[in-house]
Every structure is written in C-alpha cells, then in structure tokens.
C-alpha cells in the first residue's frame, strides 16, 4: 500500500507552515531571527533558486517495477549502519571522483577528525558538517541510542557513496554491499543524503 503520513511528533503537518514568509524575507534583527525556531528552511523545491529548482525537478529518477519490503526484529534489537551519499571518507582514503558509483568504508571507530567530504558541489550547505559531523553522519547519535537501548547496536562498518550520482551507477555494488552488511549482522540501514 502507498502510505503517506505526517510526522506525529508535534501533531502538525509540515505544510501547515506554508503561510509563513521565508525567513530571508521576514522582518526583524538577525539576533531575533536566529532565536526563532520556526522559520521556513530552504529544502522545499519552491524555496530554492530557479536554476537549482529546475535541475532537481528535471533530475531523472528511476521507477521500479517491484517494491521490496524486508521486515526485521524490533528496533531495540536491530544493529544499525549508516550509508551516506555525501562523498564522505577517511582522510587517508581516496577522494571520490565526480559521478563515481563506488563506495568508501567508514569503520565504526573512525574519529570525527578523520572524516572528510569530497562531494564538492556548490549547491548545498557545508558549514553544518564543518561544525559537527553528526549533521550529515549521525554516528554519535546512533551510539547514544544504542547506549539507551533504543536500538540494538551500531554497525562495525558504515559506508558512503558520492553524491549527485545516478542510482544505476551504484546498483553494481549494492549486492556486495548487502553481503558485507549481512556479515556485520546489520539488520537496519539508515540512508542519509546531503
């Protein structure tokens, strides 16, 4: 079935805010605006600059004939891995090439200072990641959830692909990636874009 729901955390649909002015047009001082926790952010297509909006609107997306759905144990018993498409890798690893469909391995004990991003697009914010890797690679958050018993554990290995790569470019390696994840006893993958 096709299920489209609204987050229940606040009980308010995201589009309930659509009547607000985008924050860049709103009146008030910068300090006031920074304190405002309910400003419209720029992830909605209609809020993006025209060139970027057209690019994203026209981007080909594959349509799949099947819709696989794999069940698993309760969340508190699952081992979770992160897969990012931010072009992340260890500092000593090879930088990604544009459009590459290969991946990099990020061991679970990688220190935050050892992770860099070589997805060099000018079209997304980098300052968040520069200040805190968890904004794109929430490994610390997974560790906390595991310590609290909300999830069963954190994978020993995580992975990253290059961003702005067509899904078909990645398809060739997903079989081997699945085997690696099975080998790590992973039964939940959190996919994080950039």
């Amino acid at each position: 079935m096709w299920l489209c729901t609204s987050a229940v955390r606040s009980g308010v649909r995201a589009d309930a805010f659509s009547g607000m002015l985008p924050h860049r047009w709103a009146a008030g001082s910068a300090s006031h605006q920074v304190q405002d926790q309910r400003k419209i952010s720029m992830a909605r297509l209609q809020d993006l600059p025209e060139g970027m909006r057209s690019y994203l609107t026209d981007l080909p997306c594959p349509v799949f004939a099947t819709q696989p759905w794999v069940r698993g144990p309760s969340l508190r018993d699952r081992k979770v891995a992160i897969i990012s498409t931010a072009g992340l890798h260890r500092r000593t690893d090879r930088p990604f090439a544009s459009g590459a469909g290969d991946y990099r391995i990020i061991p679970g004990d990688t220190a935050r200072g050892d992770l860099v991003m070589t997805h060099l697009s000018q079209n997304f914010d980098r300052t968040g990641f520069q200040q805190d890797w968890n904004v794109a690679f929430p490994l610390d958050r997974l560790r906390e959830l595991a310590a609290e018993g909300k999830i069963g554990g954190v994978a020993d290995y995580h992975y990253s692909f290059m961003g702005a790569t067509g899904p078909e470019q990645m398809q060739a390696v997903t079989g081997e990636l699945a085997r690696l994840l099975h080998g790590d006893a992973v039964d939940a993958v959190l996919l994080v874009p950039i």
Partner: peptide
C-alpha cells in the same frame, strides 16, 4: 534508488 537496491538484496 539505493534503498530499493539494498532492500531487494534483503537489507531493511
């Protein structure tokens, strides 16, 4: 797409 391929390979 990546989610589809991984799920197809048995990974939730």
């Amino acid at each position: 797409g990546l989610a589809h391929y991984l799920e197809h390979a048995g990974i939730p």
